[in-house]
Simulated scan of single mutants.
Amino acid sequence: MKFGILVFDGVEELDFVGPWDLLKIWSKVADGPDECLIIAESSSPITCARGLSINPHLSFDDSPTFDYLLVPGGQGTRKEVENSALLEFVERQGTTCQAVLSVCTGSFILHAAGLLSGKQATTHWASLDRLRALGDVQVVEERFVEDGQIWTSAGVSAGMDLMLGFIARTSGEEAAAEVQLSAEYFPSSTHYGEFKDHPGAPGYLKHS
C-alpha cells in the first residue's frame, strides 16, 4: 500500500504532519501503508505556512502511482489552485487512487482538479462560505466527511480525526484504536472561551 502526501509552498504544517504521524504509527502497529511518501512539484525544499522547511521525498516526475493521496491546505492553496502541473498530478492520481483525502482548504485543490464536483465536503470553518460559493459542492459542517472515494476534513487539527476515521474504515476499528492509543490522541473536552457564539463557528461546534 502506497500513501502519498502532497506538499507545496505555504502548506499548513499540522495539516500534513498530524496525518503523517498517524500513518507511520499505523504502519508500525496495525499493518498500515508499506510506503508513506511526501510529494512536491520538485524535490527542492518546501517552506511551510509557519516557516518550517521540509524536503520532499519525490517530485511529480518521479512519483509512483499511489493507492491513497492526501492533499493538505494552508494559504498556499490560493496559489496552487492555479498551478496546472499540481492540478494535473492530483487529477491523474485521482483516477487510480482508492481514495483521495484533503485537510482544511486542500478541498479547493480537489475541486480545481475536478474531484469534488457533486460531492459532500467540508473545509476550514473560515472558508465554508467560499466552498459553498463554488456552487457544485454540498457543504457539510462536520470534522470530516466521507463521500465515496473522497474524504475531506475541517481545518488543521481535524486532519487527525479524518485519518483515524480513514484507518477505521480501511483496517477496522481495532487498528484505529491501536493508532489512537499509540499517539495518545484523545482530545480534551475542555473548550476555551465562548467559541459557540462566534458567527463563523461550524455546526459541529455549536451543537457540542
Rank of each mutant, 00 (worst) to 15 (best):
K2F: 00
F3Q: 04
L6C: 02
V7Q: 10
D9T: 12
G10D: 06
V11F: 05
E12R: 04
E13N: 10
E13A: 13
L14N: 00
D15A: 11
F16D: 03
G18R: 05
G18W: 07
P19C: 12
W20K: 11
W20T: 04
D21P: 07
L22Y: 00
L23E: 14
K24N: 14
S27D: 11
V29F: 05
D31T: 13
E35M: 14
E35K: 04
S42Q: 03
S42K: 12
S42H: 10
S42G: 08
P45S: 01
I46W: 02
T47P: 12
T47H: 14
C48A: 13
A49R: 13
G51T: 09
L52F: 12
P56L: 10
P56T: 11
S59W: 02
F60T: 09
D62T: 08
D62L: 07
S63C: 15
L70D: 07
P72N: 07
R78M: 05
K79Q: 05
E80K: 08
E80R: 05
E80Y: 02
V81F: 07
E82H: 15
N83F: 01
L87A: 01
E88T: 09
E88N: 15
F89I: 07
R92I: 02
Q93P: 00
T95L: 02
T95Y: 04
V100Q: 04
S102Q: 01
S102F: 09
V103H: 07
V103S: 08
C104E: 00
C104V: 01
